[in-house]
Amino acid sequence: MSLPVLNPGDAIGLVSPAGAVRREQVQPGIDYLTSLGYICKLGQHAFSDNGLTSAPVERRLEDLHTFVADEEVKVIWALRGGYGSIQLLDRLEYGLFRGHPKILVGFSDITALQWALYARLGLPSLSGLTLTTQTRPENRYVSVGLEILSGRRKALVARDLSGESVQAFRSGEASGTLMAGTLSMICTLCGTPFWPKAEPIILALEDVNEPLYRIDRYFQQLRLMGFWENVAGLLLGKFLLDETEQDVLPLITPLVGPEVPIVYNLPYGHFSNALPFPSGVAARLQAEPFRLEWKGS
């Protein structure tokens, strides 16, 4: 599947597929992208507020489908997560995405859409860079995300993460499809037609405001599905509760095979200076020294 790349001068379609957002929350992010040379096109219902979600299902779909069909738009970018992506999964026009494949940039609740698009179409995405907090000049990893979207970056290495406390809990190498997202949102897809097929994966995980007992419940749910048997490599971001980092290693390490390399303390998660990951791409992981490379989006 040939995907358009994003370069300065290209258009980005900005949408709110899940929760509502106010213009003032995302205007600094929009201004930053504009200053870098990108054309930001807002969906008609980007700033709607329907209570639980930004807009009724039909209106959110309308914004997504409009930008998928728009030849000027190279990438679709969710303004924020929140709640509501799961309402769209069985109503998306997947054939339209197949005919006009585009990367969906988003995070948190948007994980459900990204994984569904991969499950149905093999469509890659970029996990991270919300417009509310992360797409800012202060976040050094915005440039990483834009390089991924341009097709110029095909790897992350230890020097890219200098100053971070990234560590290898278990060394080794692994190959598989890199899949990234928010743990609780991944689990909402269990047992649905939008669960990816069984294949070796390198899994990047994070979550927020989930206490350890609920995180373990999600891990155990995936264990009962046989999911961990397909995990060839594990990348752990931040699991924050009231802005405090929680240690999930004792919960997850008994569930994966002893040969599975594990890297933790990655700067991936619900905080401002967070790293984005490509998702749905063939990848290879070397735990120590850290190197993650992929074939492209």
Rank of each mutant, 00 (worst) to 15 (best):
S297D: 00
R98Y: 07
A116I: 03
A274P: 13
I30Y: 08
L241F: 13
G9F: 09
S143I: 06
A232W: 01
F47Y: 14
P289Y: 00
T253K: 14
K74A: 06
L234M: 05
V57E: 13
H65N: 13
L6N: 13
E288F: 08
W77K: 08
E24I: 09
G81K: 02
N139G: 12
M185K: 02
L292N: 02
A55F: 04
P56M: 00
I86Y: 09
K238V: 09
L131H: 07
D90C: 02
G181M: 10
A274L: 10
H65V: 12
P196C: 13
S175P: 04
G19C: 09
S184W: 04
K197A: 15
E173Q: 14
Q167S: 12
N50W: 11
G269K: 05
A198L: 01
G257T: 12
R170L: 04
D216G: 01
P4Y: 11
G172L: 05
L104R: 03
L104C: 01
N139M: 14
I252T: 01
F290E: 04
A20C: 02
A69D: 15
K238I: 10
Q167W: 07
E58T: 15
T192D: 11
A204W: 05
A112G: 08
V263S: 02
S171T: 05
E206I: 10
F271K: 07
Q221L: 15
L79Q: 05
L205E: 00
N209D: 15
A46W: 01
G296E: 00
F219E: 00
R217I: 02
D70L: 07
G95A: 05
G29H: 12
C190S: 12
L224N: 04
D63W: 06
F271G: 06
N265V: 02
F67D: 10
M1V: 15
A282W: 05
H65T: 10
D49F: 12
P8R: 09
N265A: 13
P56L: 04
I76V: 13
G176Q: 08
G237D: 14
Y213R: 11
G237A: 13
G99Y: 01
P250W: 14
C40M: 12
G84K: 02
G19F: 04
F271A: 12
L89S: 09
P124R: 12
T133E: 10
L113C: 05
F169A: 09
L275Q: 03
V248F: 13
V281N: 03
L203A: 10
R91V: 04
F271P: 10
R59D: 14
G296I: 04
L113R: 06
F169K: 05
N273V: 00
H100A: 06
L235R: 03
E72Y: 04
L117F: 10
